[in-house]
Design a protein around this nucleic acid. Structure first.
Lengths: 136, 136
DNA sequence: CGGTATCCTTTGCGATACTG
DNA sequence: CAGTATCGCAAAGGATACCG
């Protein structure tokens, strides 16, 4: 499928993007998906690998991903118990466009920060004349 | 000293994806970007084109996109005033991977919903034995 | 080890009213 | 037309404690 194909803004396509983002657009889901891209990980590995995530949020994030069929949860009832998480085929297919977004992020995040710094710096009590302003 | 440096799964890529998502992963940004993909729009057009968005949130969303250098805001001081919003080059470059995610959404959102329905249906008062469970 | 349960603060966002 | 100001609720998410 041609990824550059035009999607009219009134089409259900935009709504679908929004719905997908409302699922994986939270604070941690993408990090989990990225971390599971290469191989499965157990709970504690994910917890240590994702800096700053709380146990509670890792659990919730994984539950939601499992609910959406993006990851599998495999319980090995040993002592101590072991639980492994792995991307499903669906999860892997999602990881691709997410990775594309990641590539964009790597290339352009600096520009975002620069633009933000510029915007914030200029925003203070400047009183430009009544001419047309073009802010970018 | 960076305490996170020794953690192997901490590639900068993942962090950057997160930062980008924390910017455009809100409820409305992607809708605005998608709507501006083809041509510029004025405020009221965006408001009417994006179903359900409040005036306040459209303003805030546009401000943040402008701050990040993703859209330009062009004021024409006529009466009544006219303000046009347009994607920058940076904004257009972001629209591409977002579009890729949109394509994925079109193809797979139904599977997400189906998986969710399955998960929700099965979740109630099942008491599986101590055997290994594989949930997908 | 891999969770739940509870509490509490922060953030997001809609509704409404007002303005140049 | 294109905002800004204020309010208030609801969801997100962190901290901590407890459990099989």
């Amino acid at each position: 499928m041609d990824v550059t194909a035009r999607i009219p803004h009134h089409s259900p396509a935009c709504m679908k993007v929004s719905q997908v983002l409302s699922r994986i657009g939270d604070k941690w889901s993408v990090l989990v998906i990225m971390m599971l891209r290469e191989r499965s990980h157990r709970f504690s590995e994910l917890k240590r690998g994702i800096d700053g995530i709380s146990q509670r949020m890792l659990t919730l994030t994984l539950r939601n991903l499992e609910r959406d069929g993006l990851v599998t949860r495999t319980v090995t009832p040993s002592i101590p118990p072991r639980v492994d998480y792995e991307l499903t085929d669906l999860g892997h297919s999602l990881a691709e466009p997410v990775q594309a977004l990641g590539a964009w992020a790597i290339q352009h995040l600096a520009q975002l920060d620069a633009a933000r710094a510029r915007y914030d710096a200029q925003g203070r009590d400047l009183e430009p004349g009544p001419e047309m302003t073009r802010t970018a």
